[in-house]
Design a protein around this nucleic acid. Structure first.
Length: 878
RNA sequence: GCCGGGAUGGCGGAAUUGGUAGACGCACGGGACUCAAAAUCCCGCGGUGGCAACACCAUGGGGGUUCGAUUCCCCCUCCCGGCACCA
């Protein structure tokens, strides 16, 4: 056996053997139970980064573990190949997005292979290939037939200089990232999917999923089902004349109908029809609406704006008192939620309160909130439910009601008064707008005919193929400038028509790729092989996908089910959300006001004594740049770390071991490679241990190791076997249930530390050593499969690691004569006692009360109480 | 702003159901081996006091529940993720 550990020789040889034997090819039928484990597919940005290494190594550990446990395991891989970065790269280098993307895929695939991940490459897919995206188009048309697709006006970010729609990511502090121009809102026609039709099911079926509770909670809050009352605030007479829209008043929605007597004003969004009417002949309102048009559409930006508004001079009537109530235009009212209009109750709503304070509008508390009410300052308690008070003489019957009673009474009152009112369930969730005014995506299969309207592309003409040779220039969608693409005949009337040039949101691509892995080459969207593999037994990916991607994929699955394509209700039975890998971010504003990012290794950083960054300059020319703090590794911010250097220097096993031993998979981590050396040293030590054992001569009697009954073991060897079998149980639990790999590695390190302490060359000891080393190799195999494959071949010549089952725990090895208990006084550690595992409470108490330190702390007094926790501790309360 | 999460030695982390705080590593210090270096091995390593035995303090800050709190509850600070066109 080679005395030195040479990963550069071992790893390619092991990988070659795997490839030659199709080791990771998963059959679509098997007597074994199936286990389908998938990681979120990567965007082919150019190179793998440490987040990928973490993600796919976690998946790989589960692959090997479950395979050793006897499952038919599938781990596939693919490429989320459409999207914005390819267009940005094209603008920067003049290379078409297709070429850039395919080159990146080729390079990253090589990197994946050099990591040794157990991927079944026969199922690889790229979402930018027509074979894949044709089914996006086909399914879009099916949804359209079912009425789940519709067209409506949407609001987007508009860069007035580049004359182009900007993604939210491309808006930095309200300005276009390339031009530095102030961004505006612009309304355009968009295609939408009716995800809200599935809102209830998406909410209710969360309960049965094996997902982290935090993710389920985020999805619940995102869907945001709330029940409330929708009613009409009747227009005051002169307002009714002006509006003349056929409606008797302003429709509002509220979840707090019980506070109706606290209405002191009403507010509408700037885009509301009433605001437009008010702007006629009112310069202030018109100017305010114009002001609201400035800036982008991101909710985070809108929600942090200072609350502002103007009075419209239009009035509604309080539905109970009949008092005139003025309507304001407010920038905090969202057109996209409810009706774009709210009844304002500053007494019990925080945003209304802030608005009222700013514009000196009356604040009228009408619910008893248990604490004294002061209009000086908002307190969260003001928004609590409580008994109604101060309802006035027209509705005195409301006083004393609790929330539920109050809502009942209000609805009954409004109906009796002839005011349109109904209970309604609303959702925070909005329909899914899928139109993108971009080139590198799935073409939307619609043809716009002046005579026939929007016509679906006939199935026989699918896919609508995206031309692959265009290069975007930053101004608009190149497809819209390519007549060979958009000039078409109408499939219905044969007349001249125009092809839709918007493409689909890339979240569509990632909503069902894991089904297509299951049935490569299928002649339909999916076939029966998908039914065999679905649902995923575990889905692994970044916590940043907790809402959007996971919600869209769930919706898409349910829609496919309802079209009879699959039978599952949910795609992901279990979910492991990986924490983000963060790194420092450096940027600089360019002359135009756009933004430019720099990689951490291009930057020299100055720190203060506490390690805080005080300044940064470019290594190349010494110019000052901005430090933006830490954030997720991403292509656009140029702060990703390529694992290649680590692989070249130490090998893939060290890289895999390092990322798995450093932190639990769910933890967010700031990238550091400080202790990589330690990981490599451990693998080298493992190699040395096996080498020393093997060179001392083969041990044949593995499997006939003296068990506890045979009593052939010294106490030291018995302890070693105890530790071994404890470790097997611990690692099994960590891999299989806890999904926490750093503690599994620590346990194996402890085992090998103890093994290293045993200096015994007797035949019995050599047999135990064989058992320990074999099992340690099996326990580590899922994490570092290359070195373990090589070591196994030395420990058991003629057999292959990949065929081995997971090691079994020997219950006999876990039998102990005595156990140690902790002795506490008042909850503080004061000593230890050794007792038989079966020791009674009385025996334990007596032993504790004989302990000298315990007696010292008791100072002769009798203990007040003694708490015994079996198997753990005894606590004497003084 | 709203939703979700996090904070433990110089650093990464452990403590799984309320039961020994700091496992296992990294870095560092000391020693052995060596002509020397590398590699390897051994010892030490939260703070304060003490020769030591040991004692006290300590899990972002403040309060509470409990025989016992890193763990549960309330309040606060800072950081991370998401907020619908980054993926």
């Amino acid at each position: 056996m080679e005395s030195q550990y040479h990963p550069q020789a071992i790893e390619p040889a092991v990988q070659k053997e795997w490839a030659a034997t199709n080791a990771f090819r998963a059959p679509d039928a098997s007597p074994k139970p199936k286990y389908y484990c998938v990681s979120m597919l990567p965007y082919p940005s150019g190179k793998l980064h440490m987040g990928h290494v973490r993600n796919y190594t976690i998946n790989d550990v589960l692959y090997h573990f479950m395979r050793m446990k006897g499952w038919n395991v599938l781990m596939p891989m693919g490429w989320d190949a459409f999207g914005l970065p390819a267009e940005n790269a094209a603008m920067a280098n003049g290379v078409p997005p297709a070429k850039w993307t395919w080159d990146n895929i080729a390079y990253m695939k090589k990197q994946c292979q050099s990591m040794g991940w157990a991927i079944d490459w026969t199922r690889e897919l790229a979402t930018c290939s027509p074979d894949y995206y044709r089914w996006n188009q086909w399914f879009f048309l099916r949804l359209w037939e079912k009425g789940l697709v519709y067209k409506k006006t949407g609001v987007v970010n508009w860069d007035p200089v580049d004359m182009t729609v900007l993604a939210n990511e491309q808006v930095i502090d309200g300005r276009g990232w390339r031009t530095g121009a102030l961004v505006e809102k612009r309304e355009i026609p968009t295609w939408n999917l009716r995800i809200t039709q599935y809102a209830d099911e998406l909410l209710d079926s969360l309960d049965g999923l094996g997902w982290p509770e935090q993710v389920k909670q985020m999805q619940r809050n995102w869907i945001g089902r709330s029940s409330g009352v929708e009613f009409v605030l009747p227009y005051a007479p002169e307002t009714a004349m002006r509006m003349g829209d056929g409606r008797a008043g302003l429709k509002v929605f509220t979840t707090r109908a019980d506070t109706i007597m606290g209405i002191t004003f009403a507010a509408v969004a700037a885009e509301h029809a009433l605001a437009a009417e008010a702007a006629k002949g009112n310069g202030d309102v018109a100017a305010f609406i114009e002001e609201c048009r400035q800036g982008g559409v991101q909710e985070a930006e809108l929600a942090t704006l200072e609350k502002k508004g103007v009075p419209t001079g239009l009035f509604v009537l309080h539905p109970v008192s009949g008092d005139k109530v003025e309507v304001w235009v407010g920038n905090y009212v969202l057109m996209g939620y409810g009706e774009g209009a709210v009844m304002a109750v500053p007494g019990h709503d925080e945003r209304d309160f802030a608005f009222a304070k700013k514009y000196c509008l009356p604040i009228k508390p009408v619910v008893d909130v248990d604490i004294p009410y002061s209009t000086d300052e908002w307190k969260p308690a003001y928004a609590q439910y409580g008994r109604n008070v101060n309802s006035g003489n027209k509705f005195a019957a409301l006083d004393g009601s609790d929330y539920a009673q109050a809502v009942d009474k209000v609805v009954a009152f409004l109906e009796k008064a002839g005011i349109e009112a109904r209970r309604r369930v609303t959702y925070r969730l909005r329909d899914w707008g899928i139109s993108r005014q971009r080139y590198w995506g799935t073409p939307i299969p619609i043809i716009q005919c002046t005579k026939c309207g929007d016509v679906g592309v006939p199935d026989a003409q699918l896919p609508v193929v995206l031309p692959e040779n265009l290069v975007p220039d930053g101004s608009g969608n190149p497809l819209a400038k390519t007549p060979t693409f958009f000039e078409v005949k109408c499939p219905k009337c044969g007349g001249q028509a125009r092809r839709e040039t918007d493409t689909m949101d890339v979240f569509i691509d990632s909503s069902w790729y894991y089904m297509r892995y299951a049935c490569p080459g299928a002649k339909a969207m999916v076939d029966e092989r998908a039914q065999y593999w679905l649902p995923l037994d575990i889905y692994i990916g970044g916590i940043e996908h907790a809402i959007l991607h996971l919600l869209y994929a769930r919706f898409w699955t349910k829609a496919m089910r309802d079209l009879g394509l699959i039978k599952v209700d949910e795609p992901f039975a279990n979910l492991l959300t990986q924490g983000m890998v963060l790194n420092h971010i450096y940027s600089r504003r360019n002359a135009k006001g756009g933004i430019e990012y720099f990689a951490p290794d291009e930057v020299e950083v100055a720190h203060d004594e506490e390690g805080k960054v005080t300044g940064a300059r470019l290594k190349s020319d010494g110019s000052a740049i901005d430090y933006e703090g830490i954030g997720t590794m991403s292509k656009s911010k140029r702060n990703g770390v390529d694992p290649q250097e680590m692989i070249d220097r130490y090998g893939a096993d060290t890289a895999r071991f390092y990322v798995m031993q450093a932190n639990p998979p769910t933890d967010t981590v700031l990238w550091s490679d400080e202790s990589v050396e330690g990981s490599f040293k451990f693998l080298r030590r493992l190699w040395t241990m096996v080498h020393a054992h093997v060179e001392a001569g083969a041990v044949e009697n593995r499997g006939q190791t003296p068990s506890a009954e045979d009593r052939g073991l010294t106490p030291e060897l018995k302890e070693l076997r105890f530790k071994l079998h404890k470790t097997i149980a611990k690692v099994d639990d960590d891999y299989g249930r806890r999904l926490q790999f750093n503690t599994a590695i620590a346990a194996v390190r402890e085992l090998l530390n103890l093994y290293g302490d045993v200096k015994d060359a007797s035949p019995v000891a050599r047999a135990v050593a064989q058992e320990v080393l074999e099992d340690a190799v099996l326990l580590l195999a899922p994490i570092v499969p290359h070195i373990c494959t090589a070591l196994w071949a030395e420990l058991r010549p003629g057999t292959r690691l990949i065929d081995q089952p997971w090691p079994a725990v020997d219950a006999n090895a876990l039998v102990q004569d005595t156990i140690e208990l902790v002795v506490q006084v008042n909850g503080k550690l004061r000593g230890h006692i050794r007792v038989a595992p079966s020791a009674s409470r009385e025996v334990i108490e007596a032993a504790a009360l004989k302990d000298e330190t315990v007696l010292k702390f008791l100072k002769g007094a009798k203990p007040k109480k003694i708490v015994v926790v079996p198997g753990r501790l005894v606590n004497v309360v003084a």
